[in-house]
Amino acid sequence: MSKNDKTAIGRRLATLRKWRGFSTPAKLADEIDDSRISASLITNVEQGRKADLTLSEAVLIAHALEITPFALMFDSFRPYEIPEEYAEIGRTNLEHLQWASQDLFFDNATESLMKTAGHDLPPLDGFALANALDRALTNAEMYARDVKEIKSKLSPLDSIPTNQEKNADKLRAYTAQLWMNAADAKRYLGMCDDIGVSVPSDKREDVHNFCDMAGIDSEEG
């Protein structure tokens, strides 16, 4: 059976099983120790002979792998890609997860992510990273727009000192916020690269541009 004959969930399950250190489906089934989950079931899903998992099967397997069931449903290493099994819907993996979770877990997940040392990050954190990166870029874009707008109001011809002072204060505040969000975006992008999360070139370009505006070396580690 070729790789193309396997289902997307089967390929994800095989990848996550091996990632967690279960060398065979039988070893994972032994860890679960539930009559609903057998080595043959896991093998059949991985090989594409069983097209999908029931909710209870996904929860039991995810619990044994110490991941969320969402990591089986959507590819957290490709958050910006449209999953092949839901292609007709048109949502990316990240958008599916945001829709399914209603954004309930993202703040806590991102906070936990920032406290995690090293690179031993669970697969779901690819989603948390992508979400954090998107938020940082959105904020950076907003403050970059504010910086440009306030700079256009700074004029040596303005004879009213209070106007000049207020605009100068706003410019300093907006520039500081731009710097902060650009730095965050750079850090999140670096973490994506560290654990192999795919990020589109346009988002990479956005990080570079906002860092350039903020005076941050986007290439420096």
Rank of each mutant, 00 (worst) to 15 (best):
S2D: 08
S2G: 09
A8T: 05
I9N: 10
G10W: 12
R12G: 06
T15R: 14
W19I: 04
F22D: 03
F22C: 05
T24W: 14
D34E: 04
S35T: 04
R36P: 00
I37K: 09
T43W: 09
R49E: 08
K50P: 01
L55R: 04
E57C: 06
A58Y: 02
A58M: 03
L60I: 00
A64H: 03
E66Q: 08
T68M: 01
F70H: 04
L72G: 03
I82F: 05
E85T: 13
Y86M: 12
E95G: 01
S101F: 08
Q102C: 03
F106G: 05
F106R: 03
D107I: 06
E111G: 01
S112T: 07
K115L: 11
A117N: 12
D120H: 11
P122V: 10
D134N: 14
N139S: 15
E141L: 06
Y143M: 12
V147W: 06
K148G: 10
S152G: 05
K153H: 15
K153Y: 13
K153F: 15
S155G: 02
P156S: 10
I160M: 09
N163I: 10
N163C: 07
Q164G: 09
D169M: 11
R172P: 02
A173E: 05
T175F: 05
L178Y: 11
N181I: 02
A182E: 05
D184T: 01
A185D: 03
K186Q: 14
K186S: 13
K186H: 15
Y188A: 07
L189I: 04
D193M: 00
V199A: 02
E205T: 07
V207D: 06
C211P: 04
D212E: 15
M213P: 02
A214P: 08
D217A: 12
